[in-house]
């Protein structure tokens, strides 16, 4: 039974990361109907930001500030930087193509993804950058229940991930900005006619989604310790899958999809074999899509004729 719970914790941790990145995918798709393939690379930028903040304050073994303060600075700076980059990408790469055929911004998104990957390679080199998290957040700071080990970083990822997801959900449901985002997602032209500043709403959506990816990147750096310019690709792919399975455009769907993939990966690795993890996870996802083509929580769009 302890094995089950260990794998559950492992799966929820990775799933929380997938969910955070998937949220950005889903939000952008919701307002622009655009698959933003550069999104995973903002996760990479977030991870690098966290790494350089860590180095700025003395590195893992020589920290000059308390760890909680370091974490706050890492997360806030990563969120602001990636959020700002998301807004800039939308403004200069996607907005000019807003009325172009849908393939144009899609190709642009792929181009932005390669640009960010290679810019990071140019700026930071190809070497692995290592957080060395256990040197400043020791494993002993975690908890052990029987033979189930949950380290402090895993707890932080699950708790912070949940808070951010619930917070985002509340923002979308209860605030004026959230209402504007939903209006733009439902019908951009109608929203504009009602006086909603569509450009500002879309920019805010990009900021929020990108900031979440940046935060997820820092979490990944703390959890997996290593950062390279390529980590965004796989994270982006998994997050995109999570968004589609959950129902692309649906915020609760993105959360559910991410957690589902994370937990499924963990259990298949644990109970079957790591050899078949991708085969069975994606097989499961195909089955879900066949049963519910709009995703688990997605809604079919009714088109009146």
């Amino acid at each position: 039974m302890s094995f089950f719970f260990q794998e559950l914790v492992n799966g929820l941790t990775v799933g929380a990361l997938y969910s955070l990145v998937a949220l950005g995918f889903s939000m952008v798709y919701g307002v622009l109907k655009l698959l933003n393939f550069a999104h995973g690379d903002l996760y990479m930028v977030g991870a690098f930001t966290g790494y350089f903040v860590l180095q700025w304050f003395g590195g893992a073994q020589g920290l000059t500030i308390p760890v909680p303060l370091l974490l706050v600075i890492m997360f806030v700076l990563a969120a602001l930087l990636t959020g700002g980059m998301g807004v800039a990408i939308e403004r200069f790469a996607y907005r000019p193509l807003r009325n172009a055929p849908r393939i144009a911004p899609l190709i642009t998104a792929i181009g932005i993804s390669f640009f960010l990957e290679n810019a990071a390679l140019l700026l930071f080199g190809g070497q692995y950058r290592v957080y060395n998290t256990p040197d400043f957040i020791p494993f002993s700071a975690g908890i052990q229940i029987g033979s189930v080990n949950i380290d402090a970083v895993q707890i932080m990822v699950i708790v912070l991930g949940t808070v951010l997801m619930v917070g985002l959900r509340q923002l979308v449901v209860r605030t004026r900005l959230g209402k504007q985002m939903r209006a733009v997602a439902a019908d951009r032209e109608a929203a504009e006619m009602l006086g909603i500043n569509v450009n500002l709403t879309i920019a805010a959506t990009f900021f929020l989604g990108s900031a979440l990816a940046g935060v997820a990147g820092v979490m990944a750096g703390l959890l997996f310790n290593q950062v390279t310019n390529y980590i965004g690709f796989l994270a982006g792919l998994k997050a995109f899958t999570a968004a589609v399975v959950g129902g692309i455009g649906s915020i609760p769907g993105a959360m559910l999809g991410g957690l589902l993939i994370g937990v499924a990966e963990s259990f298949i690795t644990g109970y079957v074999s790591s050899t078949y993890t991708n085969l069975l996870v994606f097989g499961l996802l195909i089955a879900v899509m066949l049963a519910r083509p709009t995703g688990l929580l997605g809604r079919a769009q009714v088109q009146k004729v």
Binding site: F3, Q6, E7, N10, G11, T13, V14, A220, L223, F224, Q226, I231, E265, S266, T269, G270, S274
Partner: peptide, 8 residues
């Protein structure tokens, strides 16, 4: 980059 499930 995550081996926690495997290590379990």
């Amino acid at each position: 980059t995550d081996f926690s499930s495997l290590v379990a």
